[in-house]
Design a protein around this nucleic acid. Structure first.
Length: 748
DNA sequence: AGCACGCCGACT
DNA sequence: GTCGGCGTGCTC
């Protein structure tokens, strides 16, 4: 045996002499992740002449059916499966394998969220027939311009097609403005040869230099910092924190341009609702073409094309909702998370994750930069910026002539509304003045329907959901009472189901519909509209209404949460918050933060043009830090205070917050689990269960849910604890879900 | 997650 | 006498 005398790698000394290559008798078996809740991949044999590598997308038999799986990485111990059980891989798709980074990422997410890896992998494969190449498109190339019967229509076609390029049949028909039969006739006479063209791209490639250098001042400085960061091409997280209207989007577009110039693909994550036509247009204004879109209601064909072209690298920029994070990019080099504080980034079924956090993880694994963007960053991100883990980029002022609205608190104890009403005289006066100026008012109340609770004045019966424990919300426009947790609904009864008394049902508290009623009674001649997600006519109607409002076709808009996002109403000069306290008392450790973010966003809807604008905020707690921060505009003070409070109470991001979600058909079974887990928790050191007062057992879409607040220094400890606790809990398959909801940057 | 197997109630 | 409910268990 010859020993190496000199080597860079000490490990070489330890390698035994391999000897002559042994004849490969054993059939090769590889691990394959399959879409089921197994703790790891299954093994399959690889038939002769079949080539697979880790990441290959395959079809394998699983029990009686065929499923799509991904060849995974060879594991250390090697599963001890009976070799007789092994079945062969059935088919390998003609598709680039999932990149190493992607596999590491999927494994990481599975471990972090305590989800079976097969489920996580399935999220990356959500494009059923995209795994084989798109079929070639049939094209026509002109080979003979002399035809026996020449007509003006034929001449036009020939003129176009004699450019030497191949045309699609329909393309030629449209461009020449002739009927299809003209082209068909020419085909029959042998004017064209058929050629096969690569399928057209879903979007034209973006041009990073399409428009350059429109930025000025602070924006330009911020863009310069970002460009430098992207140019380094290394992992980093930047947090752009800029008020509404400060040009954040234009600034991060420069980072996108830089990544494109470096030959990288870019992912822009947006909360689903912010993926609007206006965003796509802004992108097009900067890059000359639209980004590819990715969200839940893409047409299946488009979805497949986008998936395929992302994996082949043909699509360079994707703007997508949270699920876009699991697209298998070929060469991803930048992720932007816009509205990074938005709770819509949390997925709370099947795989529980926060796309903002997972974006940071994906960037870490792929070693490329991430940019988080928000006017009101999450406390987690703010802390990371303060501690220097994130690069902070601050855009303090509005761009151009847009001024911040003049905000004022309305102390409801002193300016009480009329009996039976919810709008203070000050608010009504504000609306009146705005009406007289011919400008628009927005009244915001984050509660759908007419009234959140209905009761019988005679016997005190309260309408409760028969499926869960929450109150039924009256929707007077639709004539139903509905559960906002599970969707249960019935016709609004006229008589009390308990005592049978007619006409003695009384609505308690306001919803947007009730506010509309009050507004109409005060301003019968104003054009009033209610906007809420349950609006008749769906998303299409909603979009039309939003456009109409922007054009000034309404005087008073009464809306829920959805008016807070994205849309610009140039004539909106009064924003009234009907109940600023709503949501402060619900026991969510993030209640104050959420309220601050929401109020900031809603009041930011006003005054985006040069018009002088106002905000009136109705509250019973004018001294509350959130109210103070909103009126003073001093966000920094709010964050400072919130951060120190959180630190004291060991709340996120200082404590480690986890939700355990328990689902069972019957309430009793769920309660048994809940109790068992709650009792088990305090036995381990450093674990606190938030009591019912702070985080009550709640029913969310038929699932019992409660939260554990886990105090610990290292996430891995917490992970281990949760795993052990789940294993020790009462066995009931598939009924427990764990959402680990912590700041991943703290342990990268 | 699917899907089959298996064991008890109301039907052509 | 069968069709069909969903409880239990397995899938390399």
């Amino acid at each position: 045996m010859v020993r190496a005398m000199k080597t860079d790698s000490p490990a070489l000394f330890e390698l035994p002499d391999p000897g002559p290559e042994p004849a490969r008798q054993t059939v090769r078996a590889v691990p394959v992740l399959v879409p089921m809740p197994a703790p790891g991949p299954y093994s399959y044999t690889v038939p002769e002449n079949v080539h697979v590598v880790p990441g290959s997308i395959v079809v394998v038999p699983l029990g009686p059916r065929k499923v799509i799986g991904v060849v995974w990485d060879e594991r250390g111990e090697g599963g001890s499966v009976d070799p007789k059980k092994l079945r062969p891989i059935e088919h390998v798709f003609d598709c680039p394998p999932l990149a190493d980074d992607m596999r590491v990422f999927l494994d990481w997410v599975a471990a972090y969220t305590l989800t079976p890896p097969g489920y996580v992998a399935r999220m990356a494969l959500r494009a059923p027939t995209a795994f084989d190449p798109e079929p070639m498109v049939e094209g026509l190339r002109l080979v003979k311009s002399e035809l026996e019967r020449m007509t003006p229509a034929r001449a036009r076609v020939i003129e176009l097609a004699s450019d030497g390029f191949a045309w699609t049949r329909l393309g030629l028909v449209h461009a020449a403005g002739v009927s299809a039969s003209v082209v068909d006739g020419m085909i029959a006479q042998g004017a064209f040869e058929t050629v096969f063209l690569p399928p057209p791209p879903v979007v034209a490639p973006p041009d990073p230099d399409y428009v350059a250098d429109r930025l000025e001042g602070v924006q330009k400085d911020a863009a310069r910092v970002l460009i430098k960061t992207v140019d380094k091409g290394k992992f980093s997280v930047s947090l752009i924190d800029g008020v509404t209207g400060s040009g954040k989007t234009e600034v991060y577009f420069e980072a996108v341009a830089e990544a494109l110039k470096r030959g990288k693909q870019v992912l822009i994550l947006l909360p689903e609702i912010a993926l609007t036509a206006s965003f796509l247009e802004r992108f097009q204004d900067r890059f000359g073409s639209k980004p590819a879109e990715w969200h839940s209601d893409l047409a299946p064909r488009t979805r497949e094309k986008v998936w395929r072209q992302v994996v082949t690298g043909e699509v360079r920029v994707v703007a997508g909702a949270r699920s876009a994070l699991f697209l298998p990019f070929a060469e991803l080099g930048l992720i932007v998370v816009d509205e990074e504080h938005d709770p819509a980034y949390k997925q709370e079924d099947r795989v529980f994750y926060n796309a903002r956090d997972m974006a940071v993880v994906r960037a870490r694994i792929g070693d490329f930069p991430t940019v988080l963007v928000s006017a009101t960053p999450s406390v987690e991100s703010q802390v990371n910026a303060m501690q220097g883990r994130y690069q902070a980029i601050h855009l303090p002022t509005r761009f151009g002539d847009a001024a911040m609205p003049d905000l004022r608190l309305v102390d409801m104890r002193r300016h009480a509304p009329a009996r039976g009403g919810f709008l203070s005289p000050l608010m009504l006066r504000g609306v009146d003045a705005t009406l007289k100026k011919g400008e628009q008012s927005l009244l915001f109340l984050n509660r759908r329907g007419y009234a959140p609770l209905t009761l019988c004045r005679v016997c005190g019966h309260r309408f409760q959901c028969p499926q869960c424990s929450s109150w039924l919300v009256e929707h007077r426009f639709r004539g139903v009472i509905q559960c906002h947790q599970c969707g249960y609904q019935e016709k609004t009864p006229e008589a009390c189901p308990e005592c049978g008394t007619l006409d003695h049902l009384v609505a308690c508290g306001p919803g947007v519909e009730r506010i509309a009623e009050e507004v109409v009674s005060h301003f019968p001649d104003a054009r009033t509209i209610v906007l809420s997600s349950d609006m008749a006519g769906g998303v299409k109607r909603l979009r039309l209404e939003l456009e109409a409002i922007a054009k000034g076709e309404a005087d008073i808009v009464i809306g829920t949460q959805l008016v807070a996002k994205g849309h610009n109403f140039p004539l909106m000069t009064l924003v009234g918050i009907v109940d600023a306290d709503l949501g402060l008392a619900n026991g969510d450790p993030r209640a104050a933060e959420r309220t601050f973010q929401l109020l900031h966003q809603v009041t930011g809807r006003a005054g985006r043009t040069g018009l002088k604008s106002h905000g009136l905020i109705q509250t019973y707690q004018p001294g509350h830090p959130v109210m103070q921060a909103i009126v003073s505009g001093d966000a920094e003070a709010f964050y400072d205070r919130e951060i120190s409070e959180r630190e004291k109470a060991n709340l996120p991001p200082f404590g480690r917050l986890a939700s355990i979600i328990i689902s069972a058909d019957d309430r009793h079974s769920a309660e048994v689990h809940a109790r068992a887990l709650r009792n088990a928790a305090p036995q381990a050191a450093g674990i606190t269960v938030l009591g019912p007062a702070e985080a009550p057992l709640a029913l969310v879409r038929g699932r019992y849910r409660f939260r554990l607040l886990v105090h610990g220094q290292r996430t891995s400890d917490m992970q281990g604890f949760l795993k052990a606790m789940l294993a020790a809990g009462p066995k009931e398959r598939g009924s427990l879900h764990v959402q680990v909801d912590i700041d991943p940057q703290s342990f990268l």
